[in-house]
């Protein structure tokens, strides 16, 4: 069955004619324009390897393009900071699940790095927020990946590989993000408790942090529900708190089950803060960490880079597989 004679051409609005994006594409330039990388808020600049000297730094455009509260999506330039994003959404009682990340970071920056904040347990991985992006390819072309609607499986899912690619596959120019209603009530509690026991008794907590001794619990939702969950936490020995503990530097990735089984001795406690139920550990992790990826996975990463950026001009020096990408050990 065919859709009629001859190939169809893209609908006029699918060709990007936005002068801001075209200008950004021109600034990035084609294959002859040399090595280039995007500089965001520099809040996670040290991750993913050191940018190669001689790389030309550009800035992605900034600002909100469109926000339709009833749609629960927002279209912003990649250079918009999380602070600006939040300010645009707040009056409508909405937000994007990019919580707990540096407020000065850019939306494009946090997505390129691809590391979620400490509320990932409740809000999901930050990659789930990205619905559509327009990026500049290594050839200097504007490419649209994904779609602007809240649900979309049209074609192969380029958005997923762009999140966490450190700008090595394409340079994000604009993104459309999924928004969520802000919760009516929130609470932080902390105290010495068994995180596994607490986790099993609560219904979908937003965050459960643990330093080997103390548990910090974050709850969100309707006031009545937060009250009920708070009662469970109080009974387990937690007390209301103003907020989360400061997260120590250093980030490790483990299987969440490892945290369930890990019994730190006195000396090992408090050097780390672990995201229970997720497996991210901040600080010094005394337990077992994640192994190295399969050779076939390394090959796939390399091949992808080769296909998307044959000349290696996009953010040279950075590598999503690098040990210092914040996913494995780094100090």
């Amino acid at each position: 069955m065919s859709a009629g004679p001859g190939p169809l051409a893209p609908l006029p609005d699918r060709v990007v004619r936005d002068p801001v994006l075209l200008a950004f594409a021109d600034e990035v330039g084609g294959v002859d324009a040399g090595p280039v990388a995007v500089e965001g808020g520099r809040t996670q600049w040290e991750l993913g390897g050191r940018s190669e000297p001689g790389t030309r730094l550009v800035r992605a455009p900034a600002g909100v393009v469109a926000f339709e509260p009833a749609e629960m999506t927002i279209q912003v330039r990649a250079g918009t900071t999380l602070d600006e994003l939040d300010a645009a959404l707040e009056p409508a009682g909405q937000r994007v699940a990019l919580q707990g990340l540096p407020r000065a970071a850019t939306v494009g920056g946090v997505l390129c790095v691809g590391l979620s904040g400490p509320t990932r347990l409740g809000h999901g991985h930050i990659r789930e927020t990205l619905l559509q992006t327009r990026y500049v390819s290594s050839e200097g072309l504007l490419v649209t990946a994904g779609g602007p609607t809240v649900k979309n499986v049209t074609g192969f899912d380029l958005c997923r590989v762009l999140v966490g690619s450190y700008g090595t596959l394409g340079l994000l120019a604009e993104v459309t993000l999924r928004t969520r209603p802000r919760p009516q009530a929130t609470a932080w509690l902390a105290g010495p408790a068994d995180p596994a026991d607490l986790f099993d008794r609560l219904y979908r907590p937003m965050s459960l942090l643990w330093d080997g001794e103390t548990v910090w619990l974050h709850l969100e939702g309707y006031p009545e529900d937060v009250a009920v969950q708070t009662a469970i936490a109080l009974e387990a020995g937690l007390q209301p708190m103003a907020g989360p503990p400061p997260l120590p530097t250093g980030r490790h990735s483990v299987e969440p089950g490892v945290l369930r089984r890990f019994r730190p001795d006195r000396a090992q406690r408090s050097g780390f803060v672990a995201e229970f139920g997720v497996g991210v550990v901040h600080g010094e992790w005394p337990g077992p960490t994640q192994g190295t990826p399969d050779a076939s996975v390394v090959t796939l990463n390399r091949r992808l880079k080769q296909l998307f950026d044959p000349t290696g001009r996009l953010n040279p020096g950075r590598d999503p597989l690098a040990p210092s990408n914040g996913k494995a050990d780094h100090r």
Binding site: D157, C159, G164, S253, G257, G279, Q290, P293, V297, N325
Partner: peptide, 29 residues
């Protein structure tokens, strides 16, 4: 099982698997 017959585990149980999100690329492929 990749088209060349090799085996690969995409993504992982750990919080942040190394490399780009090949798991995400595979889902919906």
């Amino acid at each position: 099982v990749l088209p060349n017959g090799e085996l690969a585990v995409l993504g992982g149980l750990g919080a942040d698997p190394a490399g780009v999100d090949l798991r995400g690329a595979f889902v919906g492929s």
